[in-house]
Simulated scan of single mutants.
Amino acid sequence: MSSSDSARRTVIVGAGMAGVQTAVSLREQGWGGAITLLGEEPHAPYDRPPLSKGVTTAAFDVDFAGLDVDLQLGRQATALSPARRTVTAADGEAIPYDHLVIATGAQPVTLPGAETAHALRTLDDAVALRPVLEAKHDIVIVGAGWIGAEFATAARQAGCAVTVVEAADRPLAGALPAEIGERMRGWYAEAGVDLRTGTTVAAVEPGAVVLADGTRLPAGAVVVGVGARPATGWLAGSGVALDPGDRSVLADDRLRTSVPRVYAVGDCASFPSARYGARLLIHHWDNALQGPRTAAVNLLGGDEPYDPVPYFWSEQFGRFVQYAGHLSPADTVLWRGDPDGPSWSVCWLRDGALTALLAVGRPRDLAQGRKLIERGARLDPALAADPAVPLRAAAR
């Protein structure tokens, strides 16, 4: 790298997994210039998944000083000026950049009129919920998605009485087909969780949640887990193209934005997938881990496409659930094992090729299936449906 290159600065906005991994990847890939990493929270960067998977915290094991990364905590970005190549912080300082990486993640969707309800996104959220669990309060969780199920699991393990309220008619309605989500309904009952589907919250009052049908649920605490939206409001007027629906940064397949020298990674960015023929917005840990490497390579002059097989995992009600790929309603569903038993998998096939897989207590299926999806492998349906046959042996 030339001396002029070493004088340049990459600014990364967001100090979550995606932002931290971008800084690490830039150094690993040979970036010799300055790196400034802006974190909105005052805490040292930490891993978010454990916040719901047991309400624990885990700081990243990264030597920022050793990597010569200027980590600035408590610095919220409020505006971007591509013409000046500056990011404006909340205190008014304009921070210059030569390259910029947007990694501001996502913000939890709030419940109108529920200002006292807890979210579960930040370290402060987790800290606020610990005494709730220790006091064994009656807890009402709004949302039966992945976050809601994981926190319900932690709350039951802590000895709390738990009610989960879901507007849809089943758990995970926004993530999985009805025939899958309905199989998970019984998990709540087994764990002693009162699951109420097809109903909405009308009001949150001191000590109670009032449902749309007038039912009053005792609530020492209310936790809202109804999804998250990309944290991109600070980009208004910058020229960075956003999706008009979900407000994600519209990155291309190299994770470049519509503005030169500006990249986007993690929960705040969507990208086109040639593998699935769709634009994907992935709010999962693995995407925040993989994307930064590709962004770093391309920022340094490479030409590497980003088209991963999406992956995530969840622990809920004593079950280890993993998912890889991206399904569509037109895909053929193939079951492996008894869905009423302790371990089973579901495969989705498109024109005979494996496109997605959900594994409950079958990590080997997931590991093999993920590789088959990456290869675009076609499966023999009869062999794939036999849970005694290794999934890789079903590949044609």
Rank of each mutant, 00 (worst) to 15 (best):
L289I: 10
E115G: 13
T56G: 04
D61V: 04
I180E: 09
R247F: 03
A155L: 01
V226D: 09
P50T: 06
A356I: 02
I139R: 00
L176S: 13
R279L: 00
T163H: 02
L372Q: 06
G33I: 06
R392H: 12
K136M: 04
T36E: 15
R319S: 13
L123A: 01
A59M: 11
L366Y: 12
A269Y: 05
A89Q: 11
A208L: 14
S6Q: 14
L242A: 02
P230N: 05
A149R: 06
L289D: 14
A161Q: 13
Y306Q: 01
G352K: 02
G174M: 03
T200I: 01
A15M: 07
T116D: 09
R121C: 10
A385T: 12
A288W: 00
A175D: 15
H284P: 08
R130Q: 15
S2G: 15
R27F: 07
S314L: 06
L250F: 03
G325R: 01
D213V: 02
R350H: 10
S238L: 06
G225C: 07
G227C: 11
D63C: 06
N287V: 00
G148P: 06
D213E: 06
M1D: 14
R8L: 13
F60A: 03
M1V: 13
T355I: 05
Y323M: 11
V127C: 03
G66C: 06
E134F: 00
L383T: 12
T355N: 01
R256S: 09
P49K: 00
G19F: 00
G352S: 13
P292K: 03
D194R: 00
R378M: 12
G143N: 07
R256I: 08
S2E: 12
I35C: 09
V360R: 03
A367W: 09
W344F: 15
T104D: 08
S6A: 15
C268V: 12
D252Q: 05
F312I: 03
G301V: 06
V249F: 02
G145A: 10
E93K: 04
D380L: 05
V140E: 04
G352N: 07
L281G: 07
Y97V: 03
V101Q: 12
D68Y: 02
F64E: 07
V164Q: 11
G207I: 02
G74M: 02
V265M: 00
A278C: 08
E315N: 14
A58H: 10
T86E: 14
A149N: 10
R378H: 12
F312G: 11
V24T: 10
L176D: 13
A144D: 08
R261W: 05
